[in-house]
Design a protein around this nucleic acid. Structure first.
Lengths: 142, 142
DNA sequence: TACTTACCTACTAGGTAAGTGGGTTGAAAT
DNA sequence: ATTTCAACCCACTTACCTAGTAGGTAAGTA
């Protein structure tokens, strides 16, 4: 289940992309437009700044700006950053302790394939894909 | 994230399938073999009985037995039963209240496609696929 | 009657989600 | 220099969920 952290982060990036004009956009504007608590956004957004996806400047006239173009901004990266992990089961999480039953596990292979499916799906979508009427993964071949 | 409920349920069904000989298998045997708390399994399993996937008989010589053949036992059904829902976002859950922003949401389409991807993936796998060395979704075309 | 096994309800400890409140730091405008 | 604005940081809260455990009852067989 993708939590509000990941979903809100995506909406912030889409908003930044759609209102992109070179200047900085205050998070308060985005919070108002997206109808999300400003305080909560302030807790979510720093991870995007630290990873270099967006940049923020303090003070009057400040705010946030996309660093990458929307075409280069991968949804999978955003979700992995904000959600911590996209692993569908505990044993595939990045901090998981090795499972003693792995060798005999009948389901591990399925979880691994599902894990790849998830990551590949979101790595195939960019913020640019989500702008406008968002055909999104329209061209994802299934 | 698939919780232990869903994962344990699958392991119970695989165990039942692999030890299937017409008689009833006590949950204690499965709990021992799978190294899962019997008490916890007793809380998870009734939903499988109620939905008709397995049947349980009381008393000595009792236990559980698969009703369907492993080939007809769909992993997607098991997970939807035990996890309640496989929806990746709150707004697509079966008890979700309608979202006021749905018409203008740039991400809804992506979540819907992801939702289909998840359900289709698990609906394409049966308990029979998971038995033995479990090539699982080896033949799932991506 | 004794034993076994499914089945049921209530309870608990620990963790996570989704925020809120109250600040501090940094930069621009006055 | 001072005010103003906005990013940034940290502690806290409320509610809910996960992964169990405890203690039974119901139903069937030996």
């Amino acid at each position: 289940m993708i939590s509000t952290r990941g979903r809100y982060a995506l909406r912030v990036l889409i908003d930044l992309a759609e209102h992109r004009n070179g200047s900085y956009i205050p998070m308060k504007d985005i919070a108002d437009r997206q109808d999300i608590s400003l305080k909560y956004l302030e807790r979510i957004v720093p991870v995007l700044t630290k990873s270099g996806l967006i940049e923020g400047v303090h003070g009057k006239g400040g705010g946030y700006r996309l660093v990458l173009s929307p075409e280069k901004c991968i949804v999978g990266d955003v979700l992995r950053l904000t959600e911590g992990d996209l692993a569908p089961v505990a044993c595939l999480a990045k901090d998981a302790k090795p499972c003693a039953r792995a060798a005999e596990c009948r389901t591990l292979d399925m979880w691994k394939k599902f894990n790849s499916l998830i990551n590949d799906f979101f790595d195939g979508i960019t913020i640019a894909d989500l702008m406008k009427s968002s055909p999104a993964a329209e061209n994802y071949i299934i």
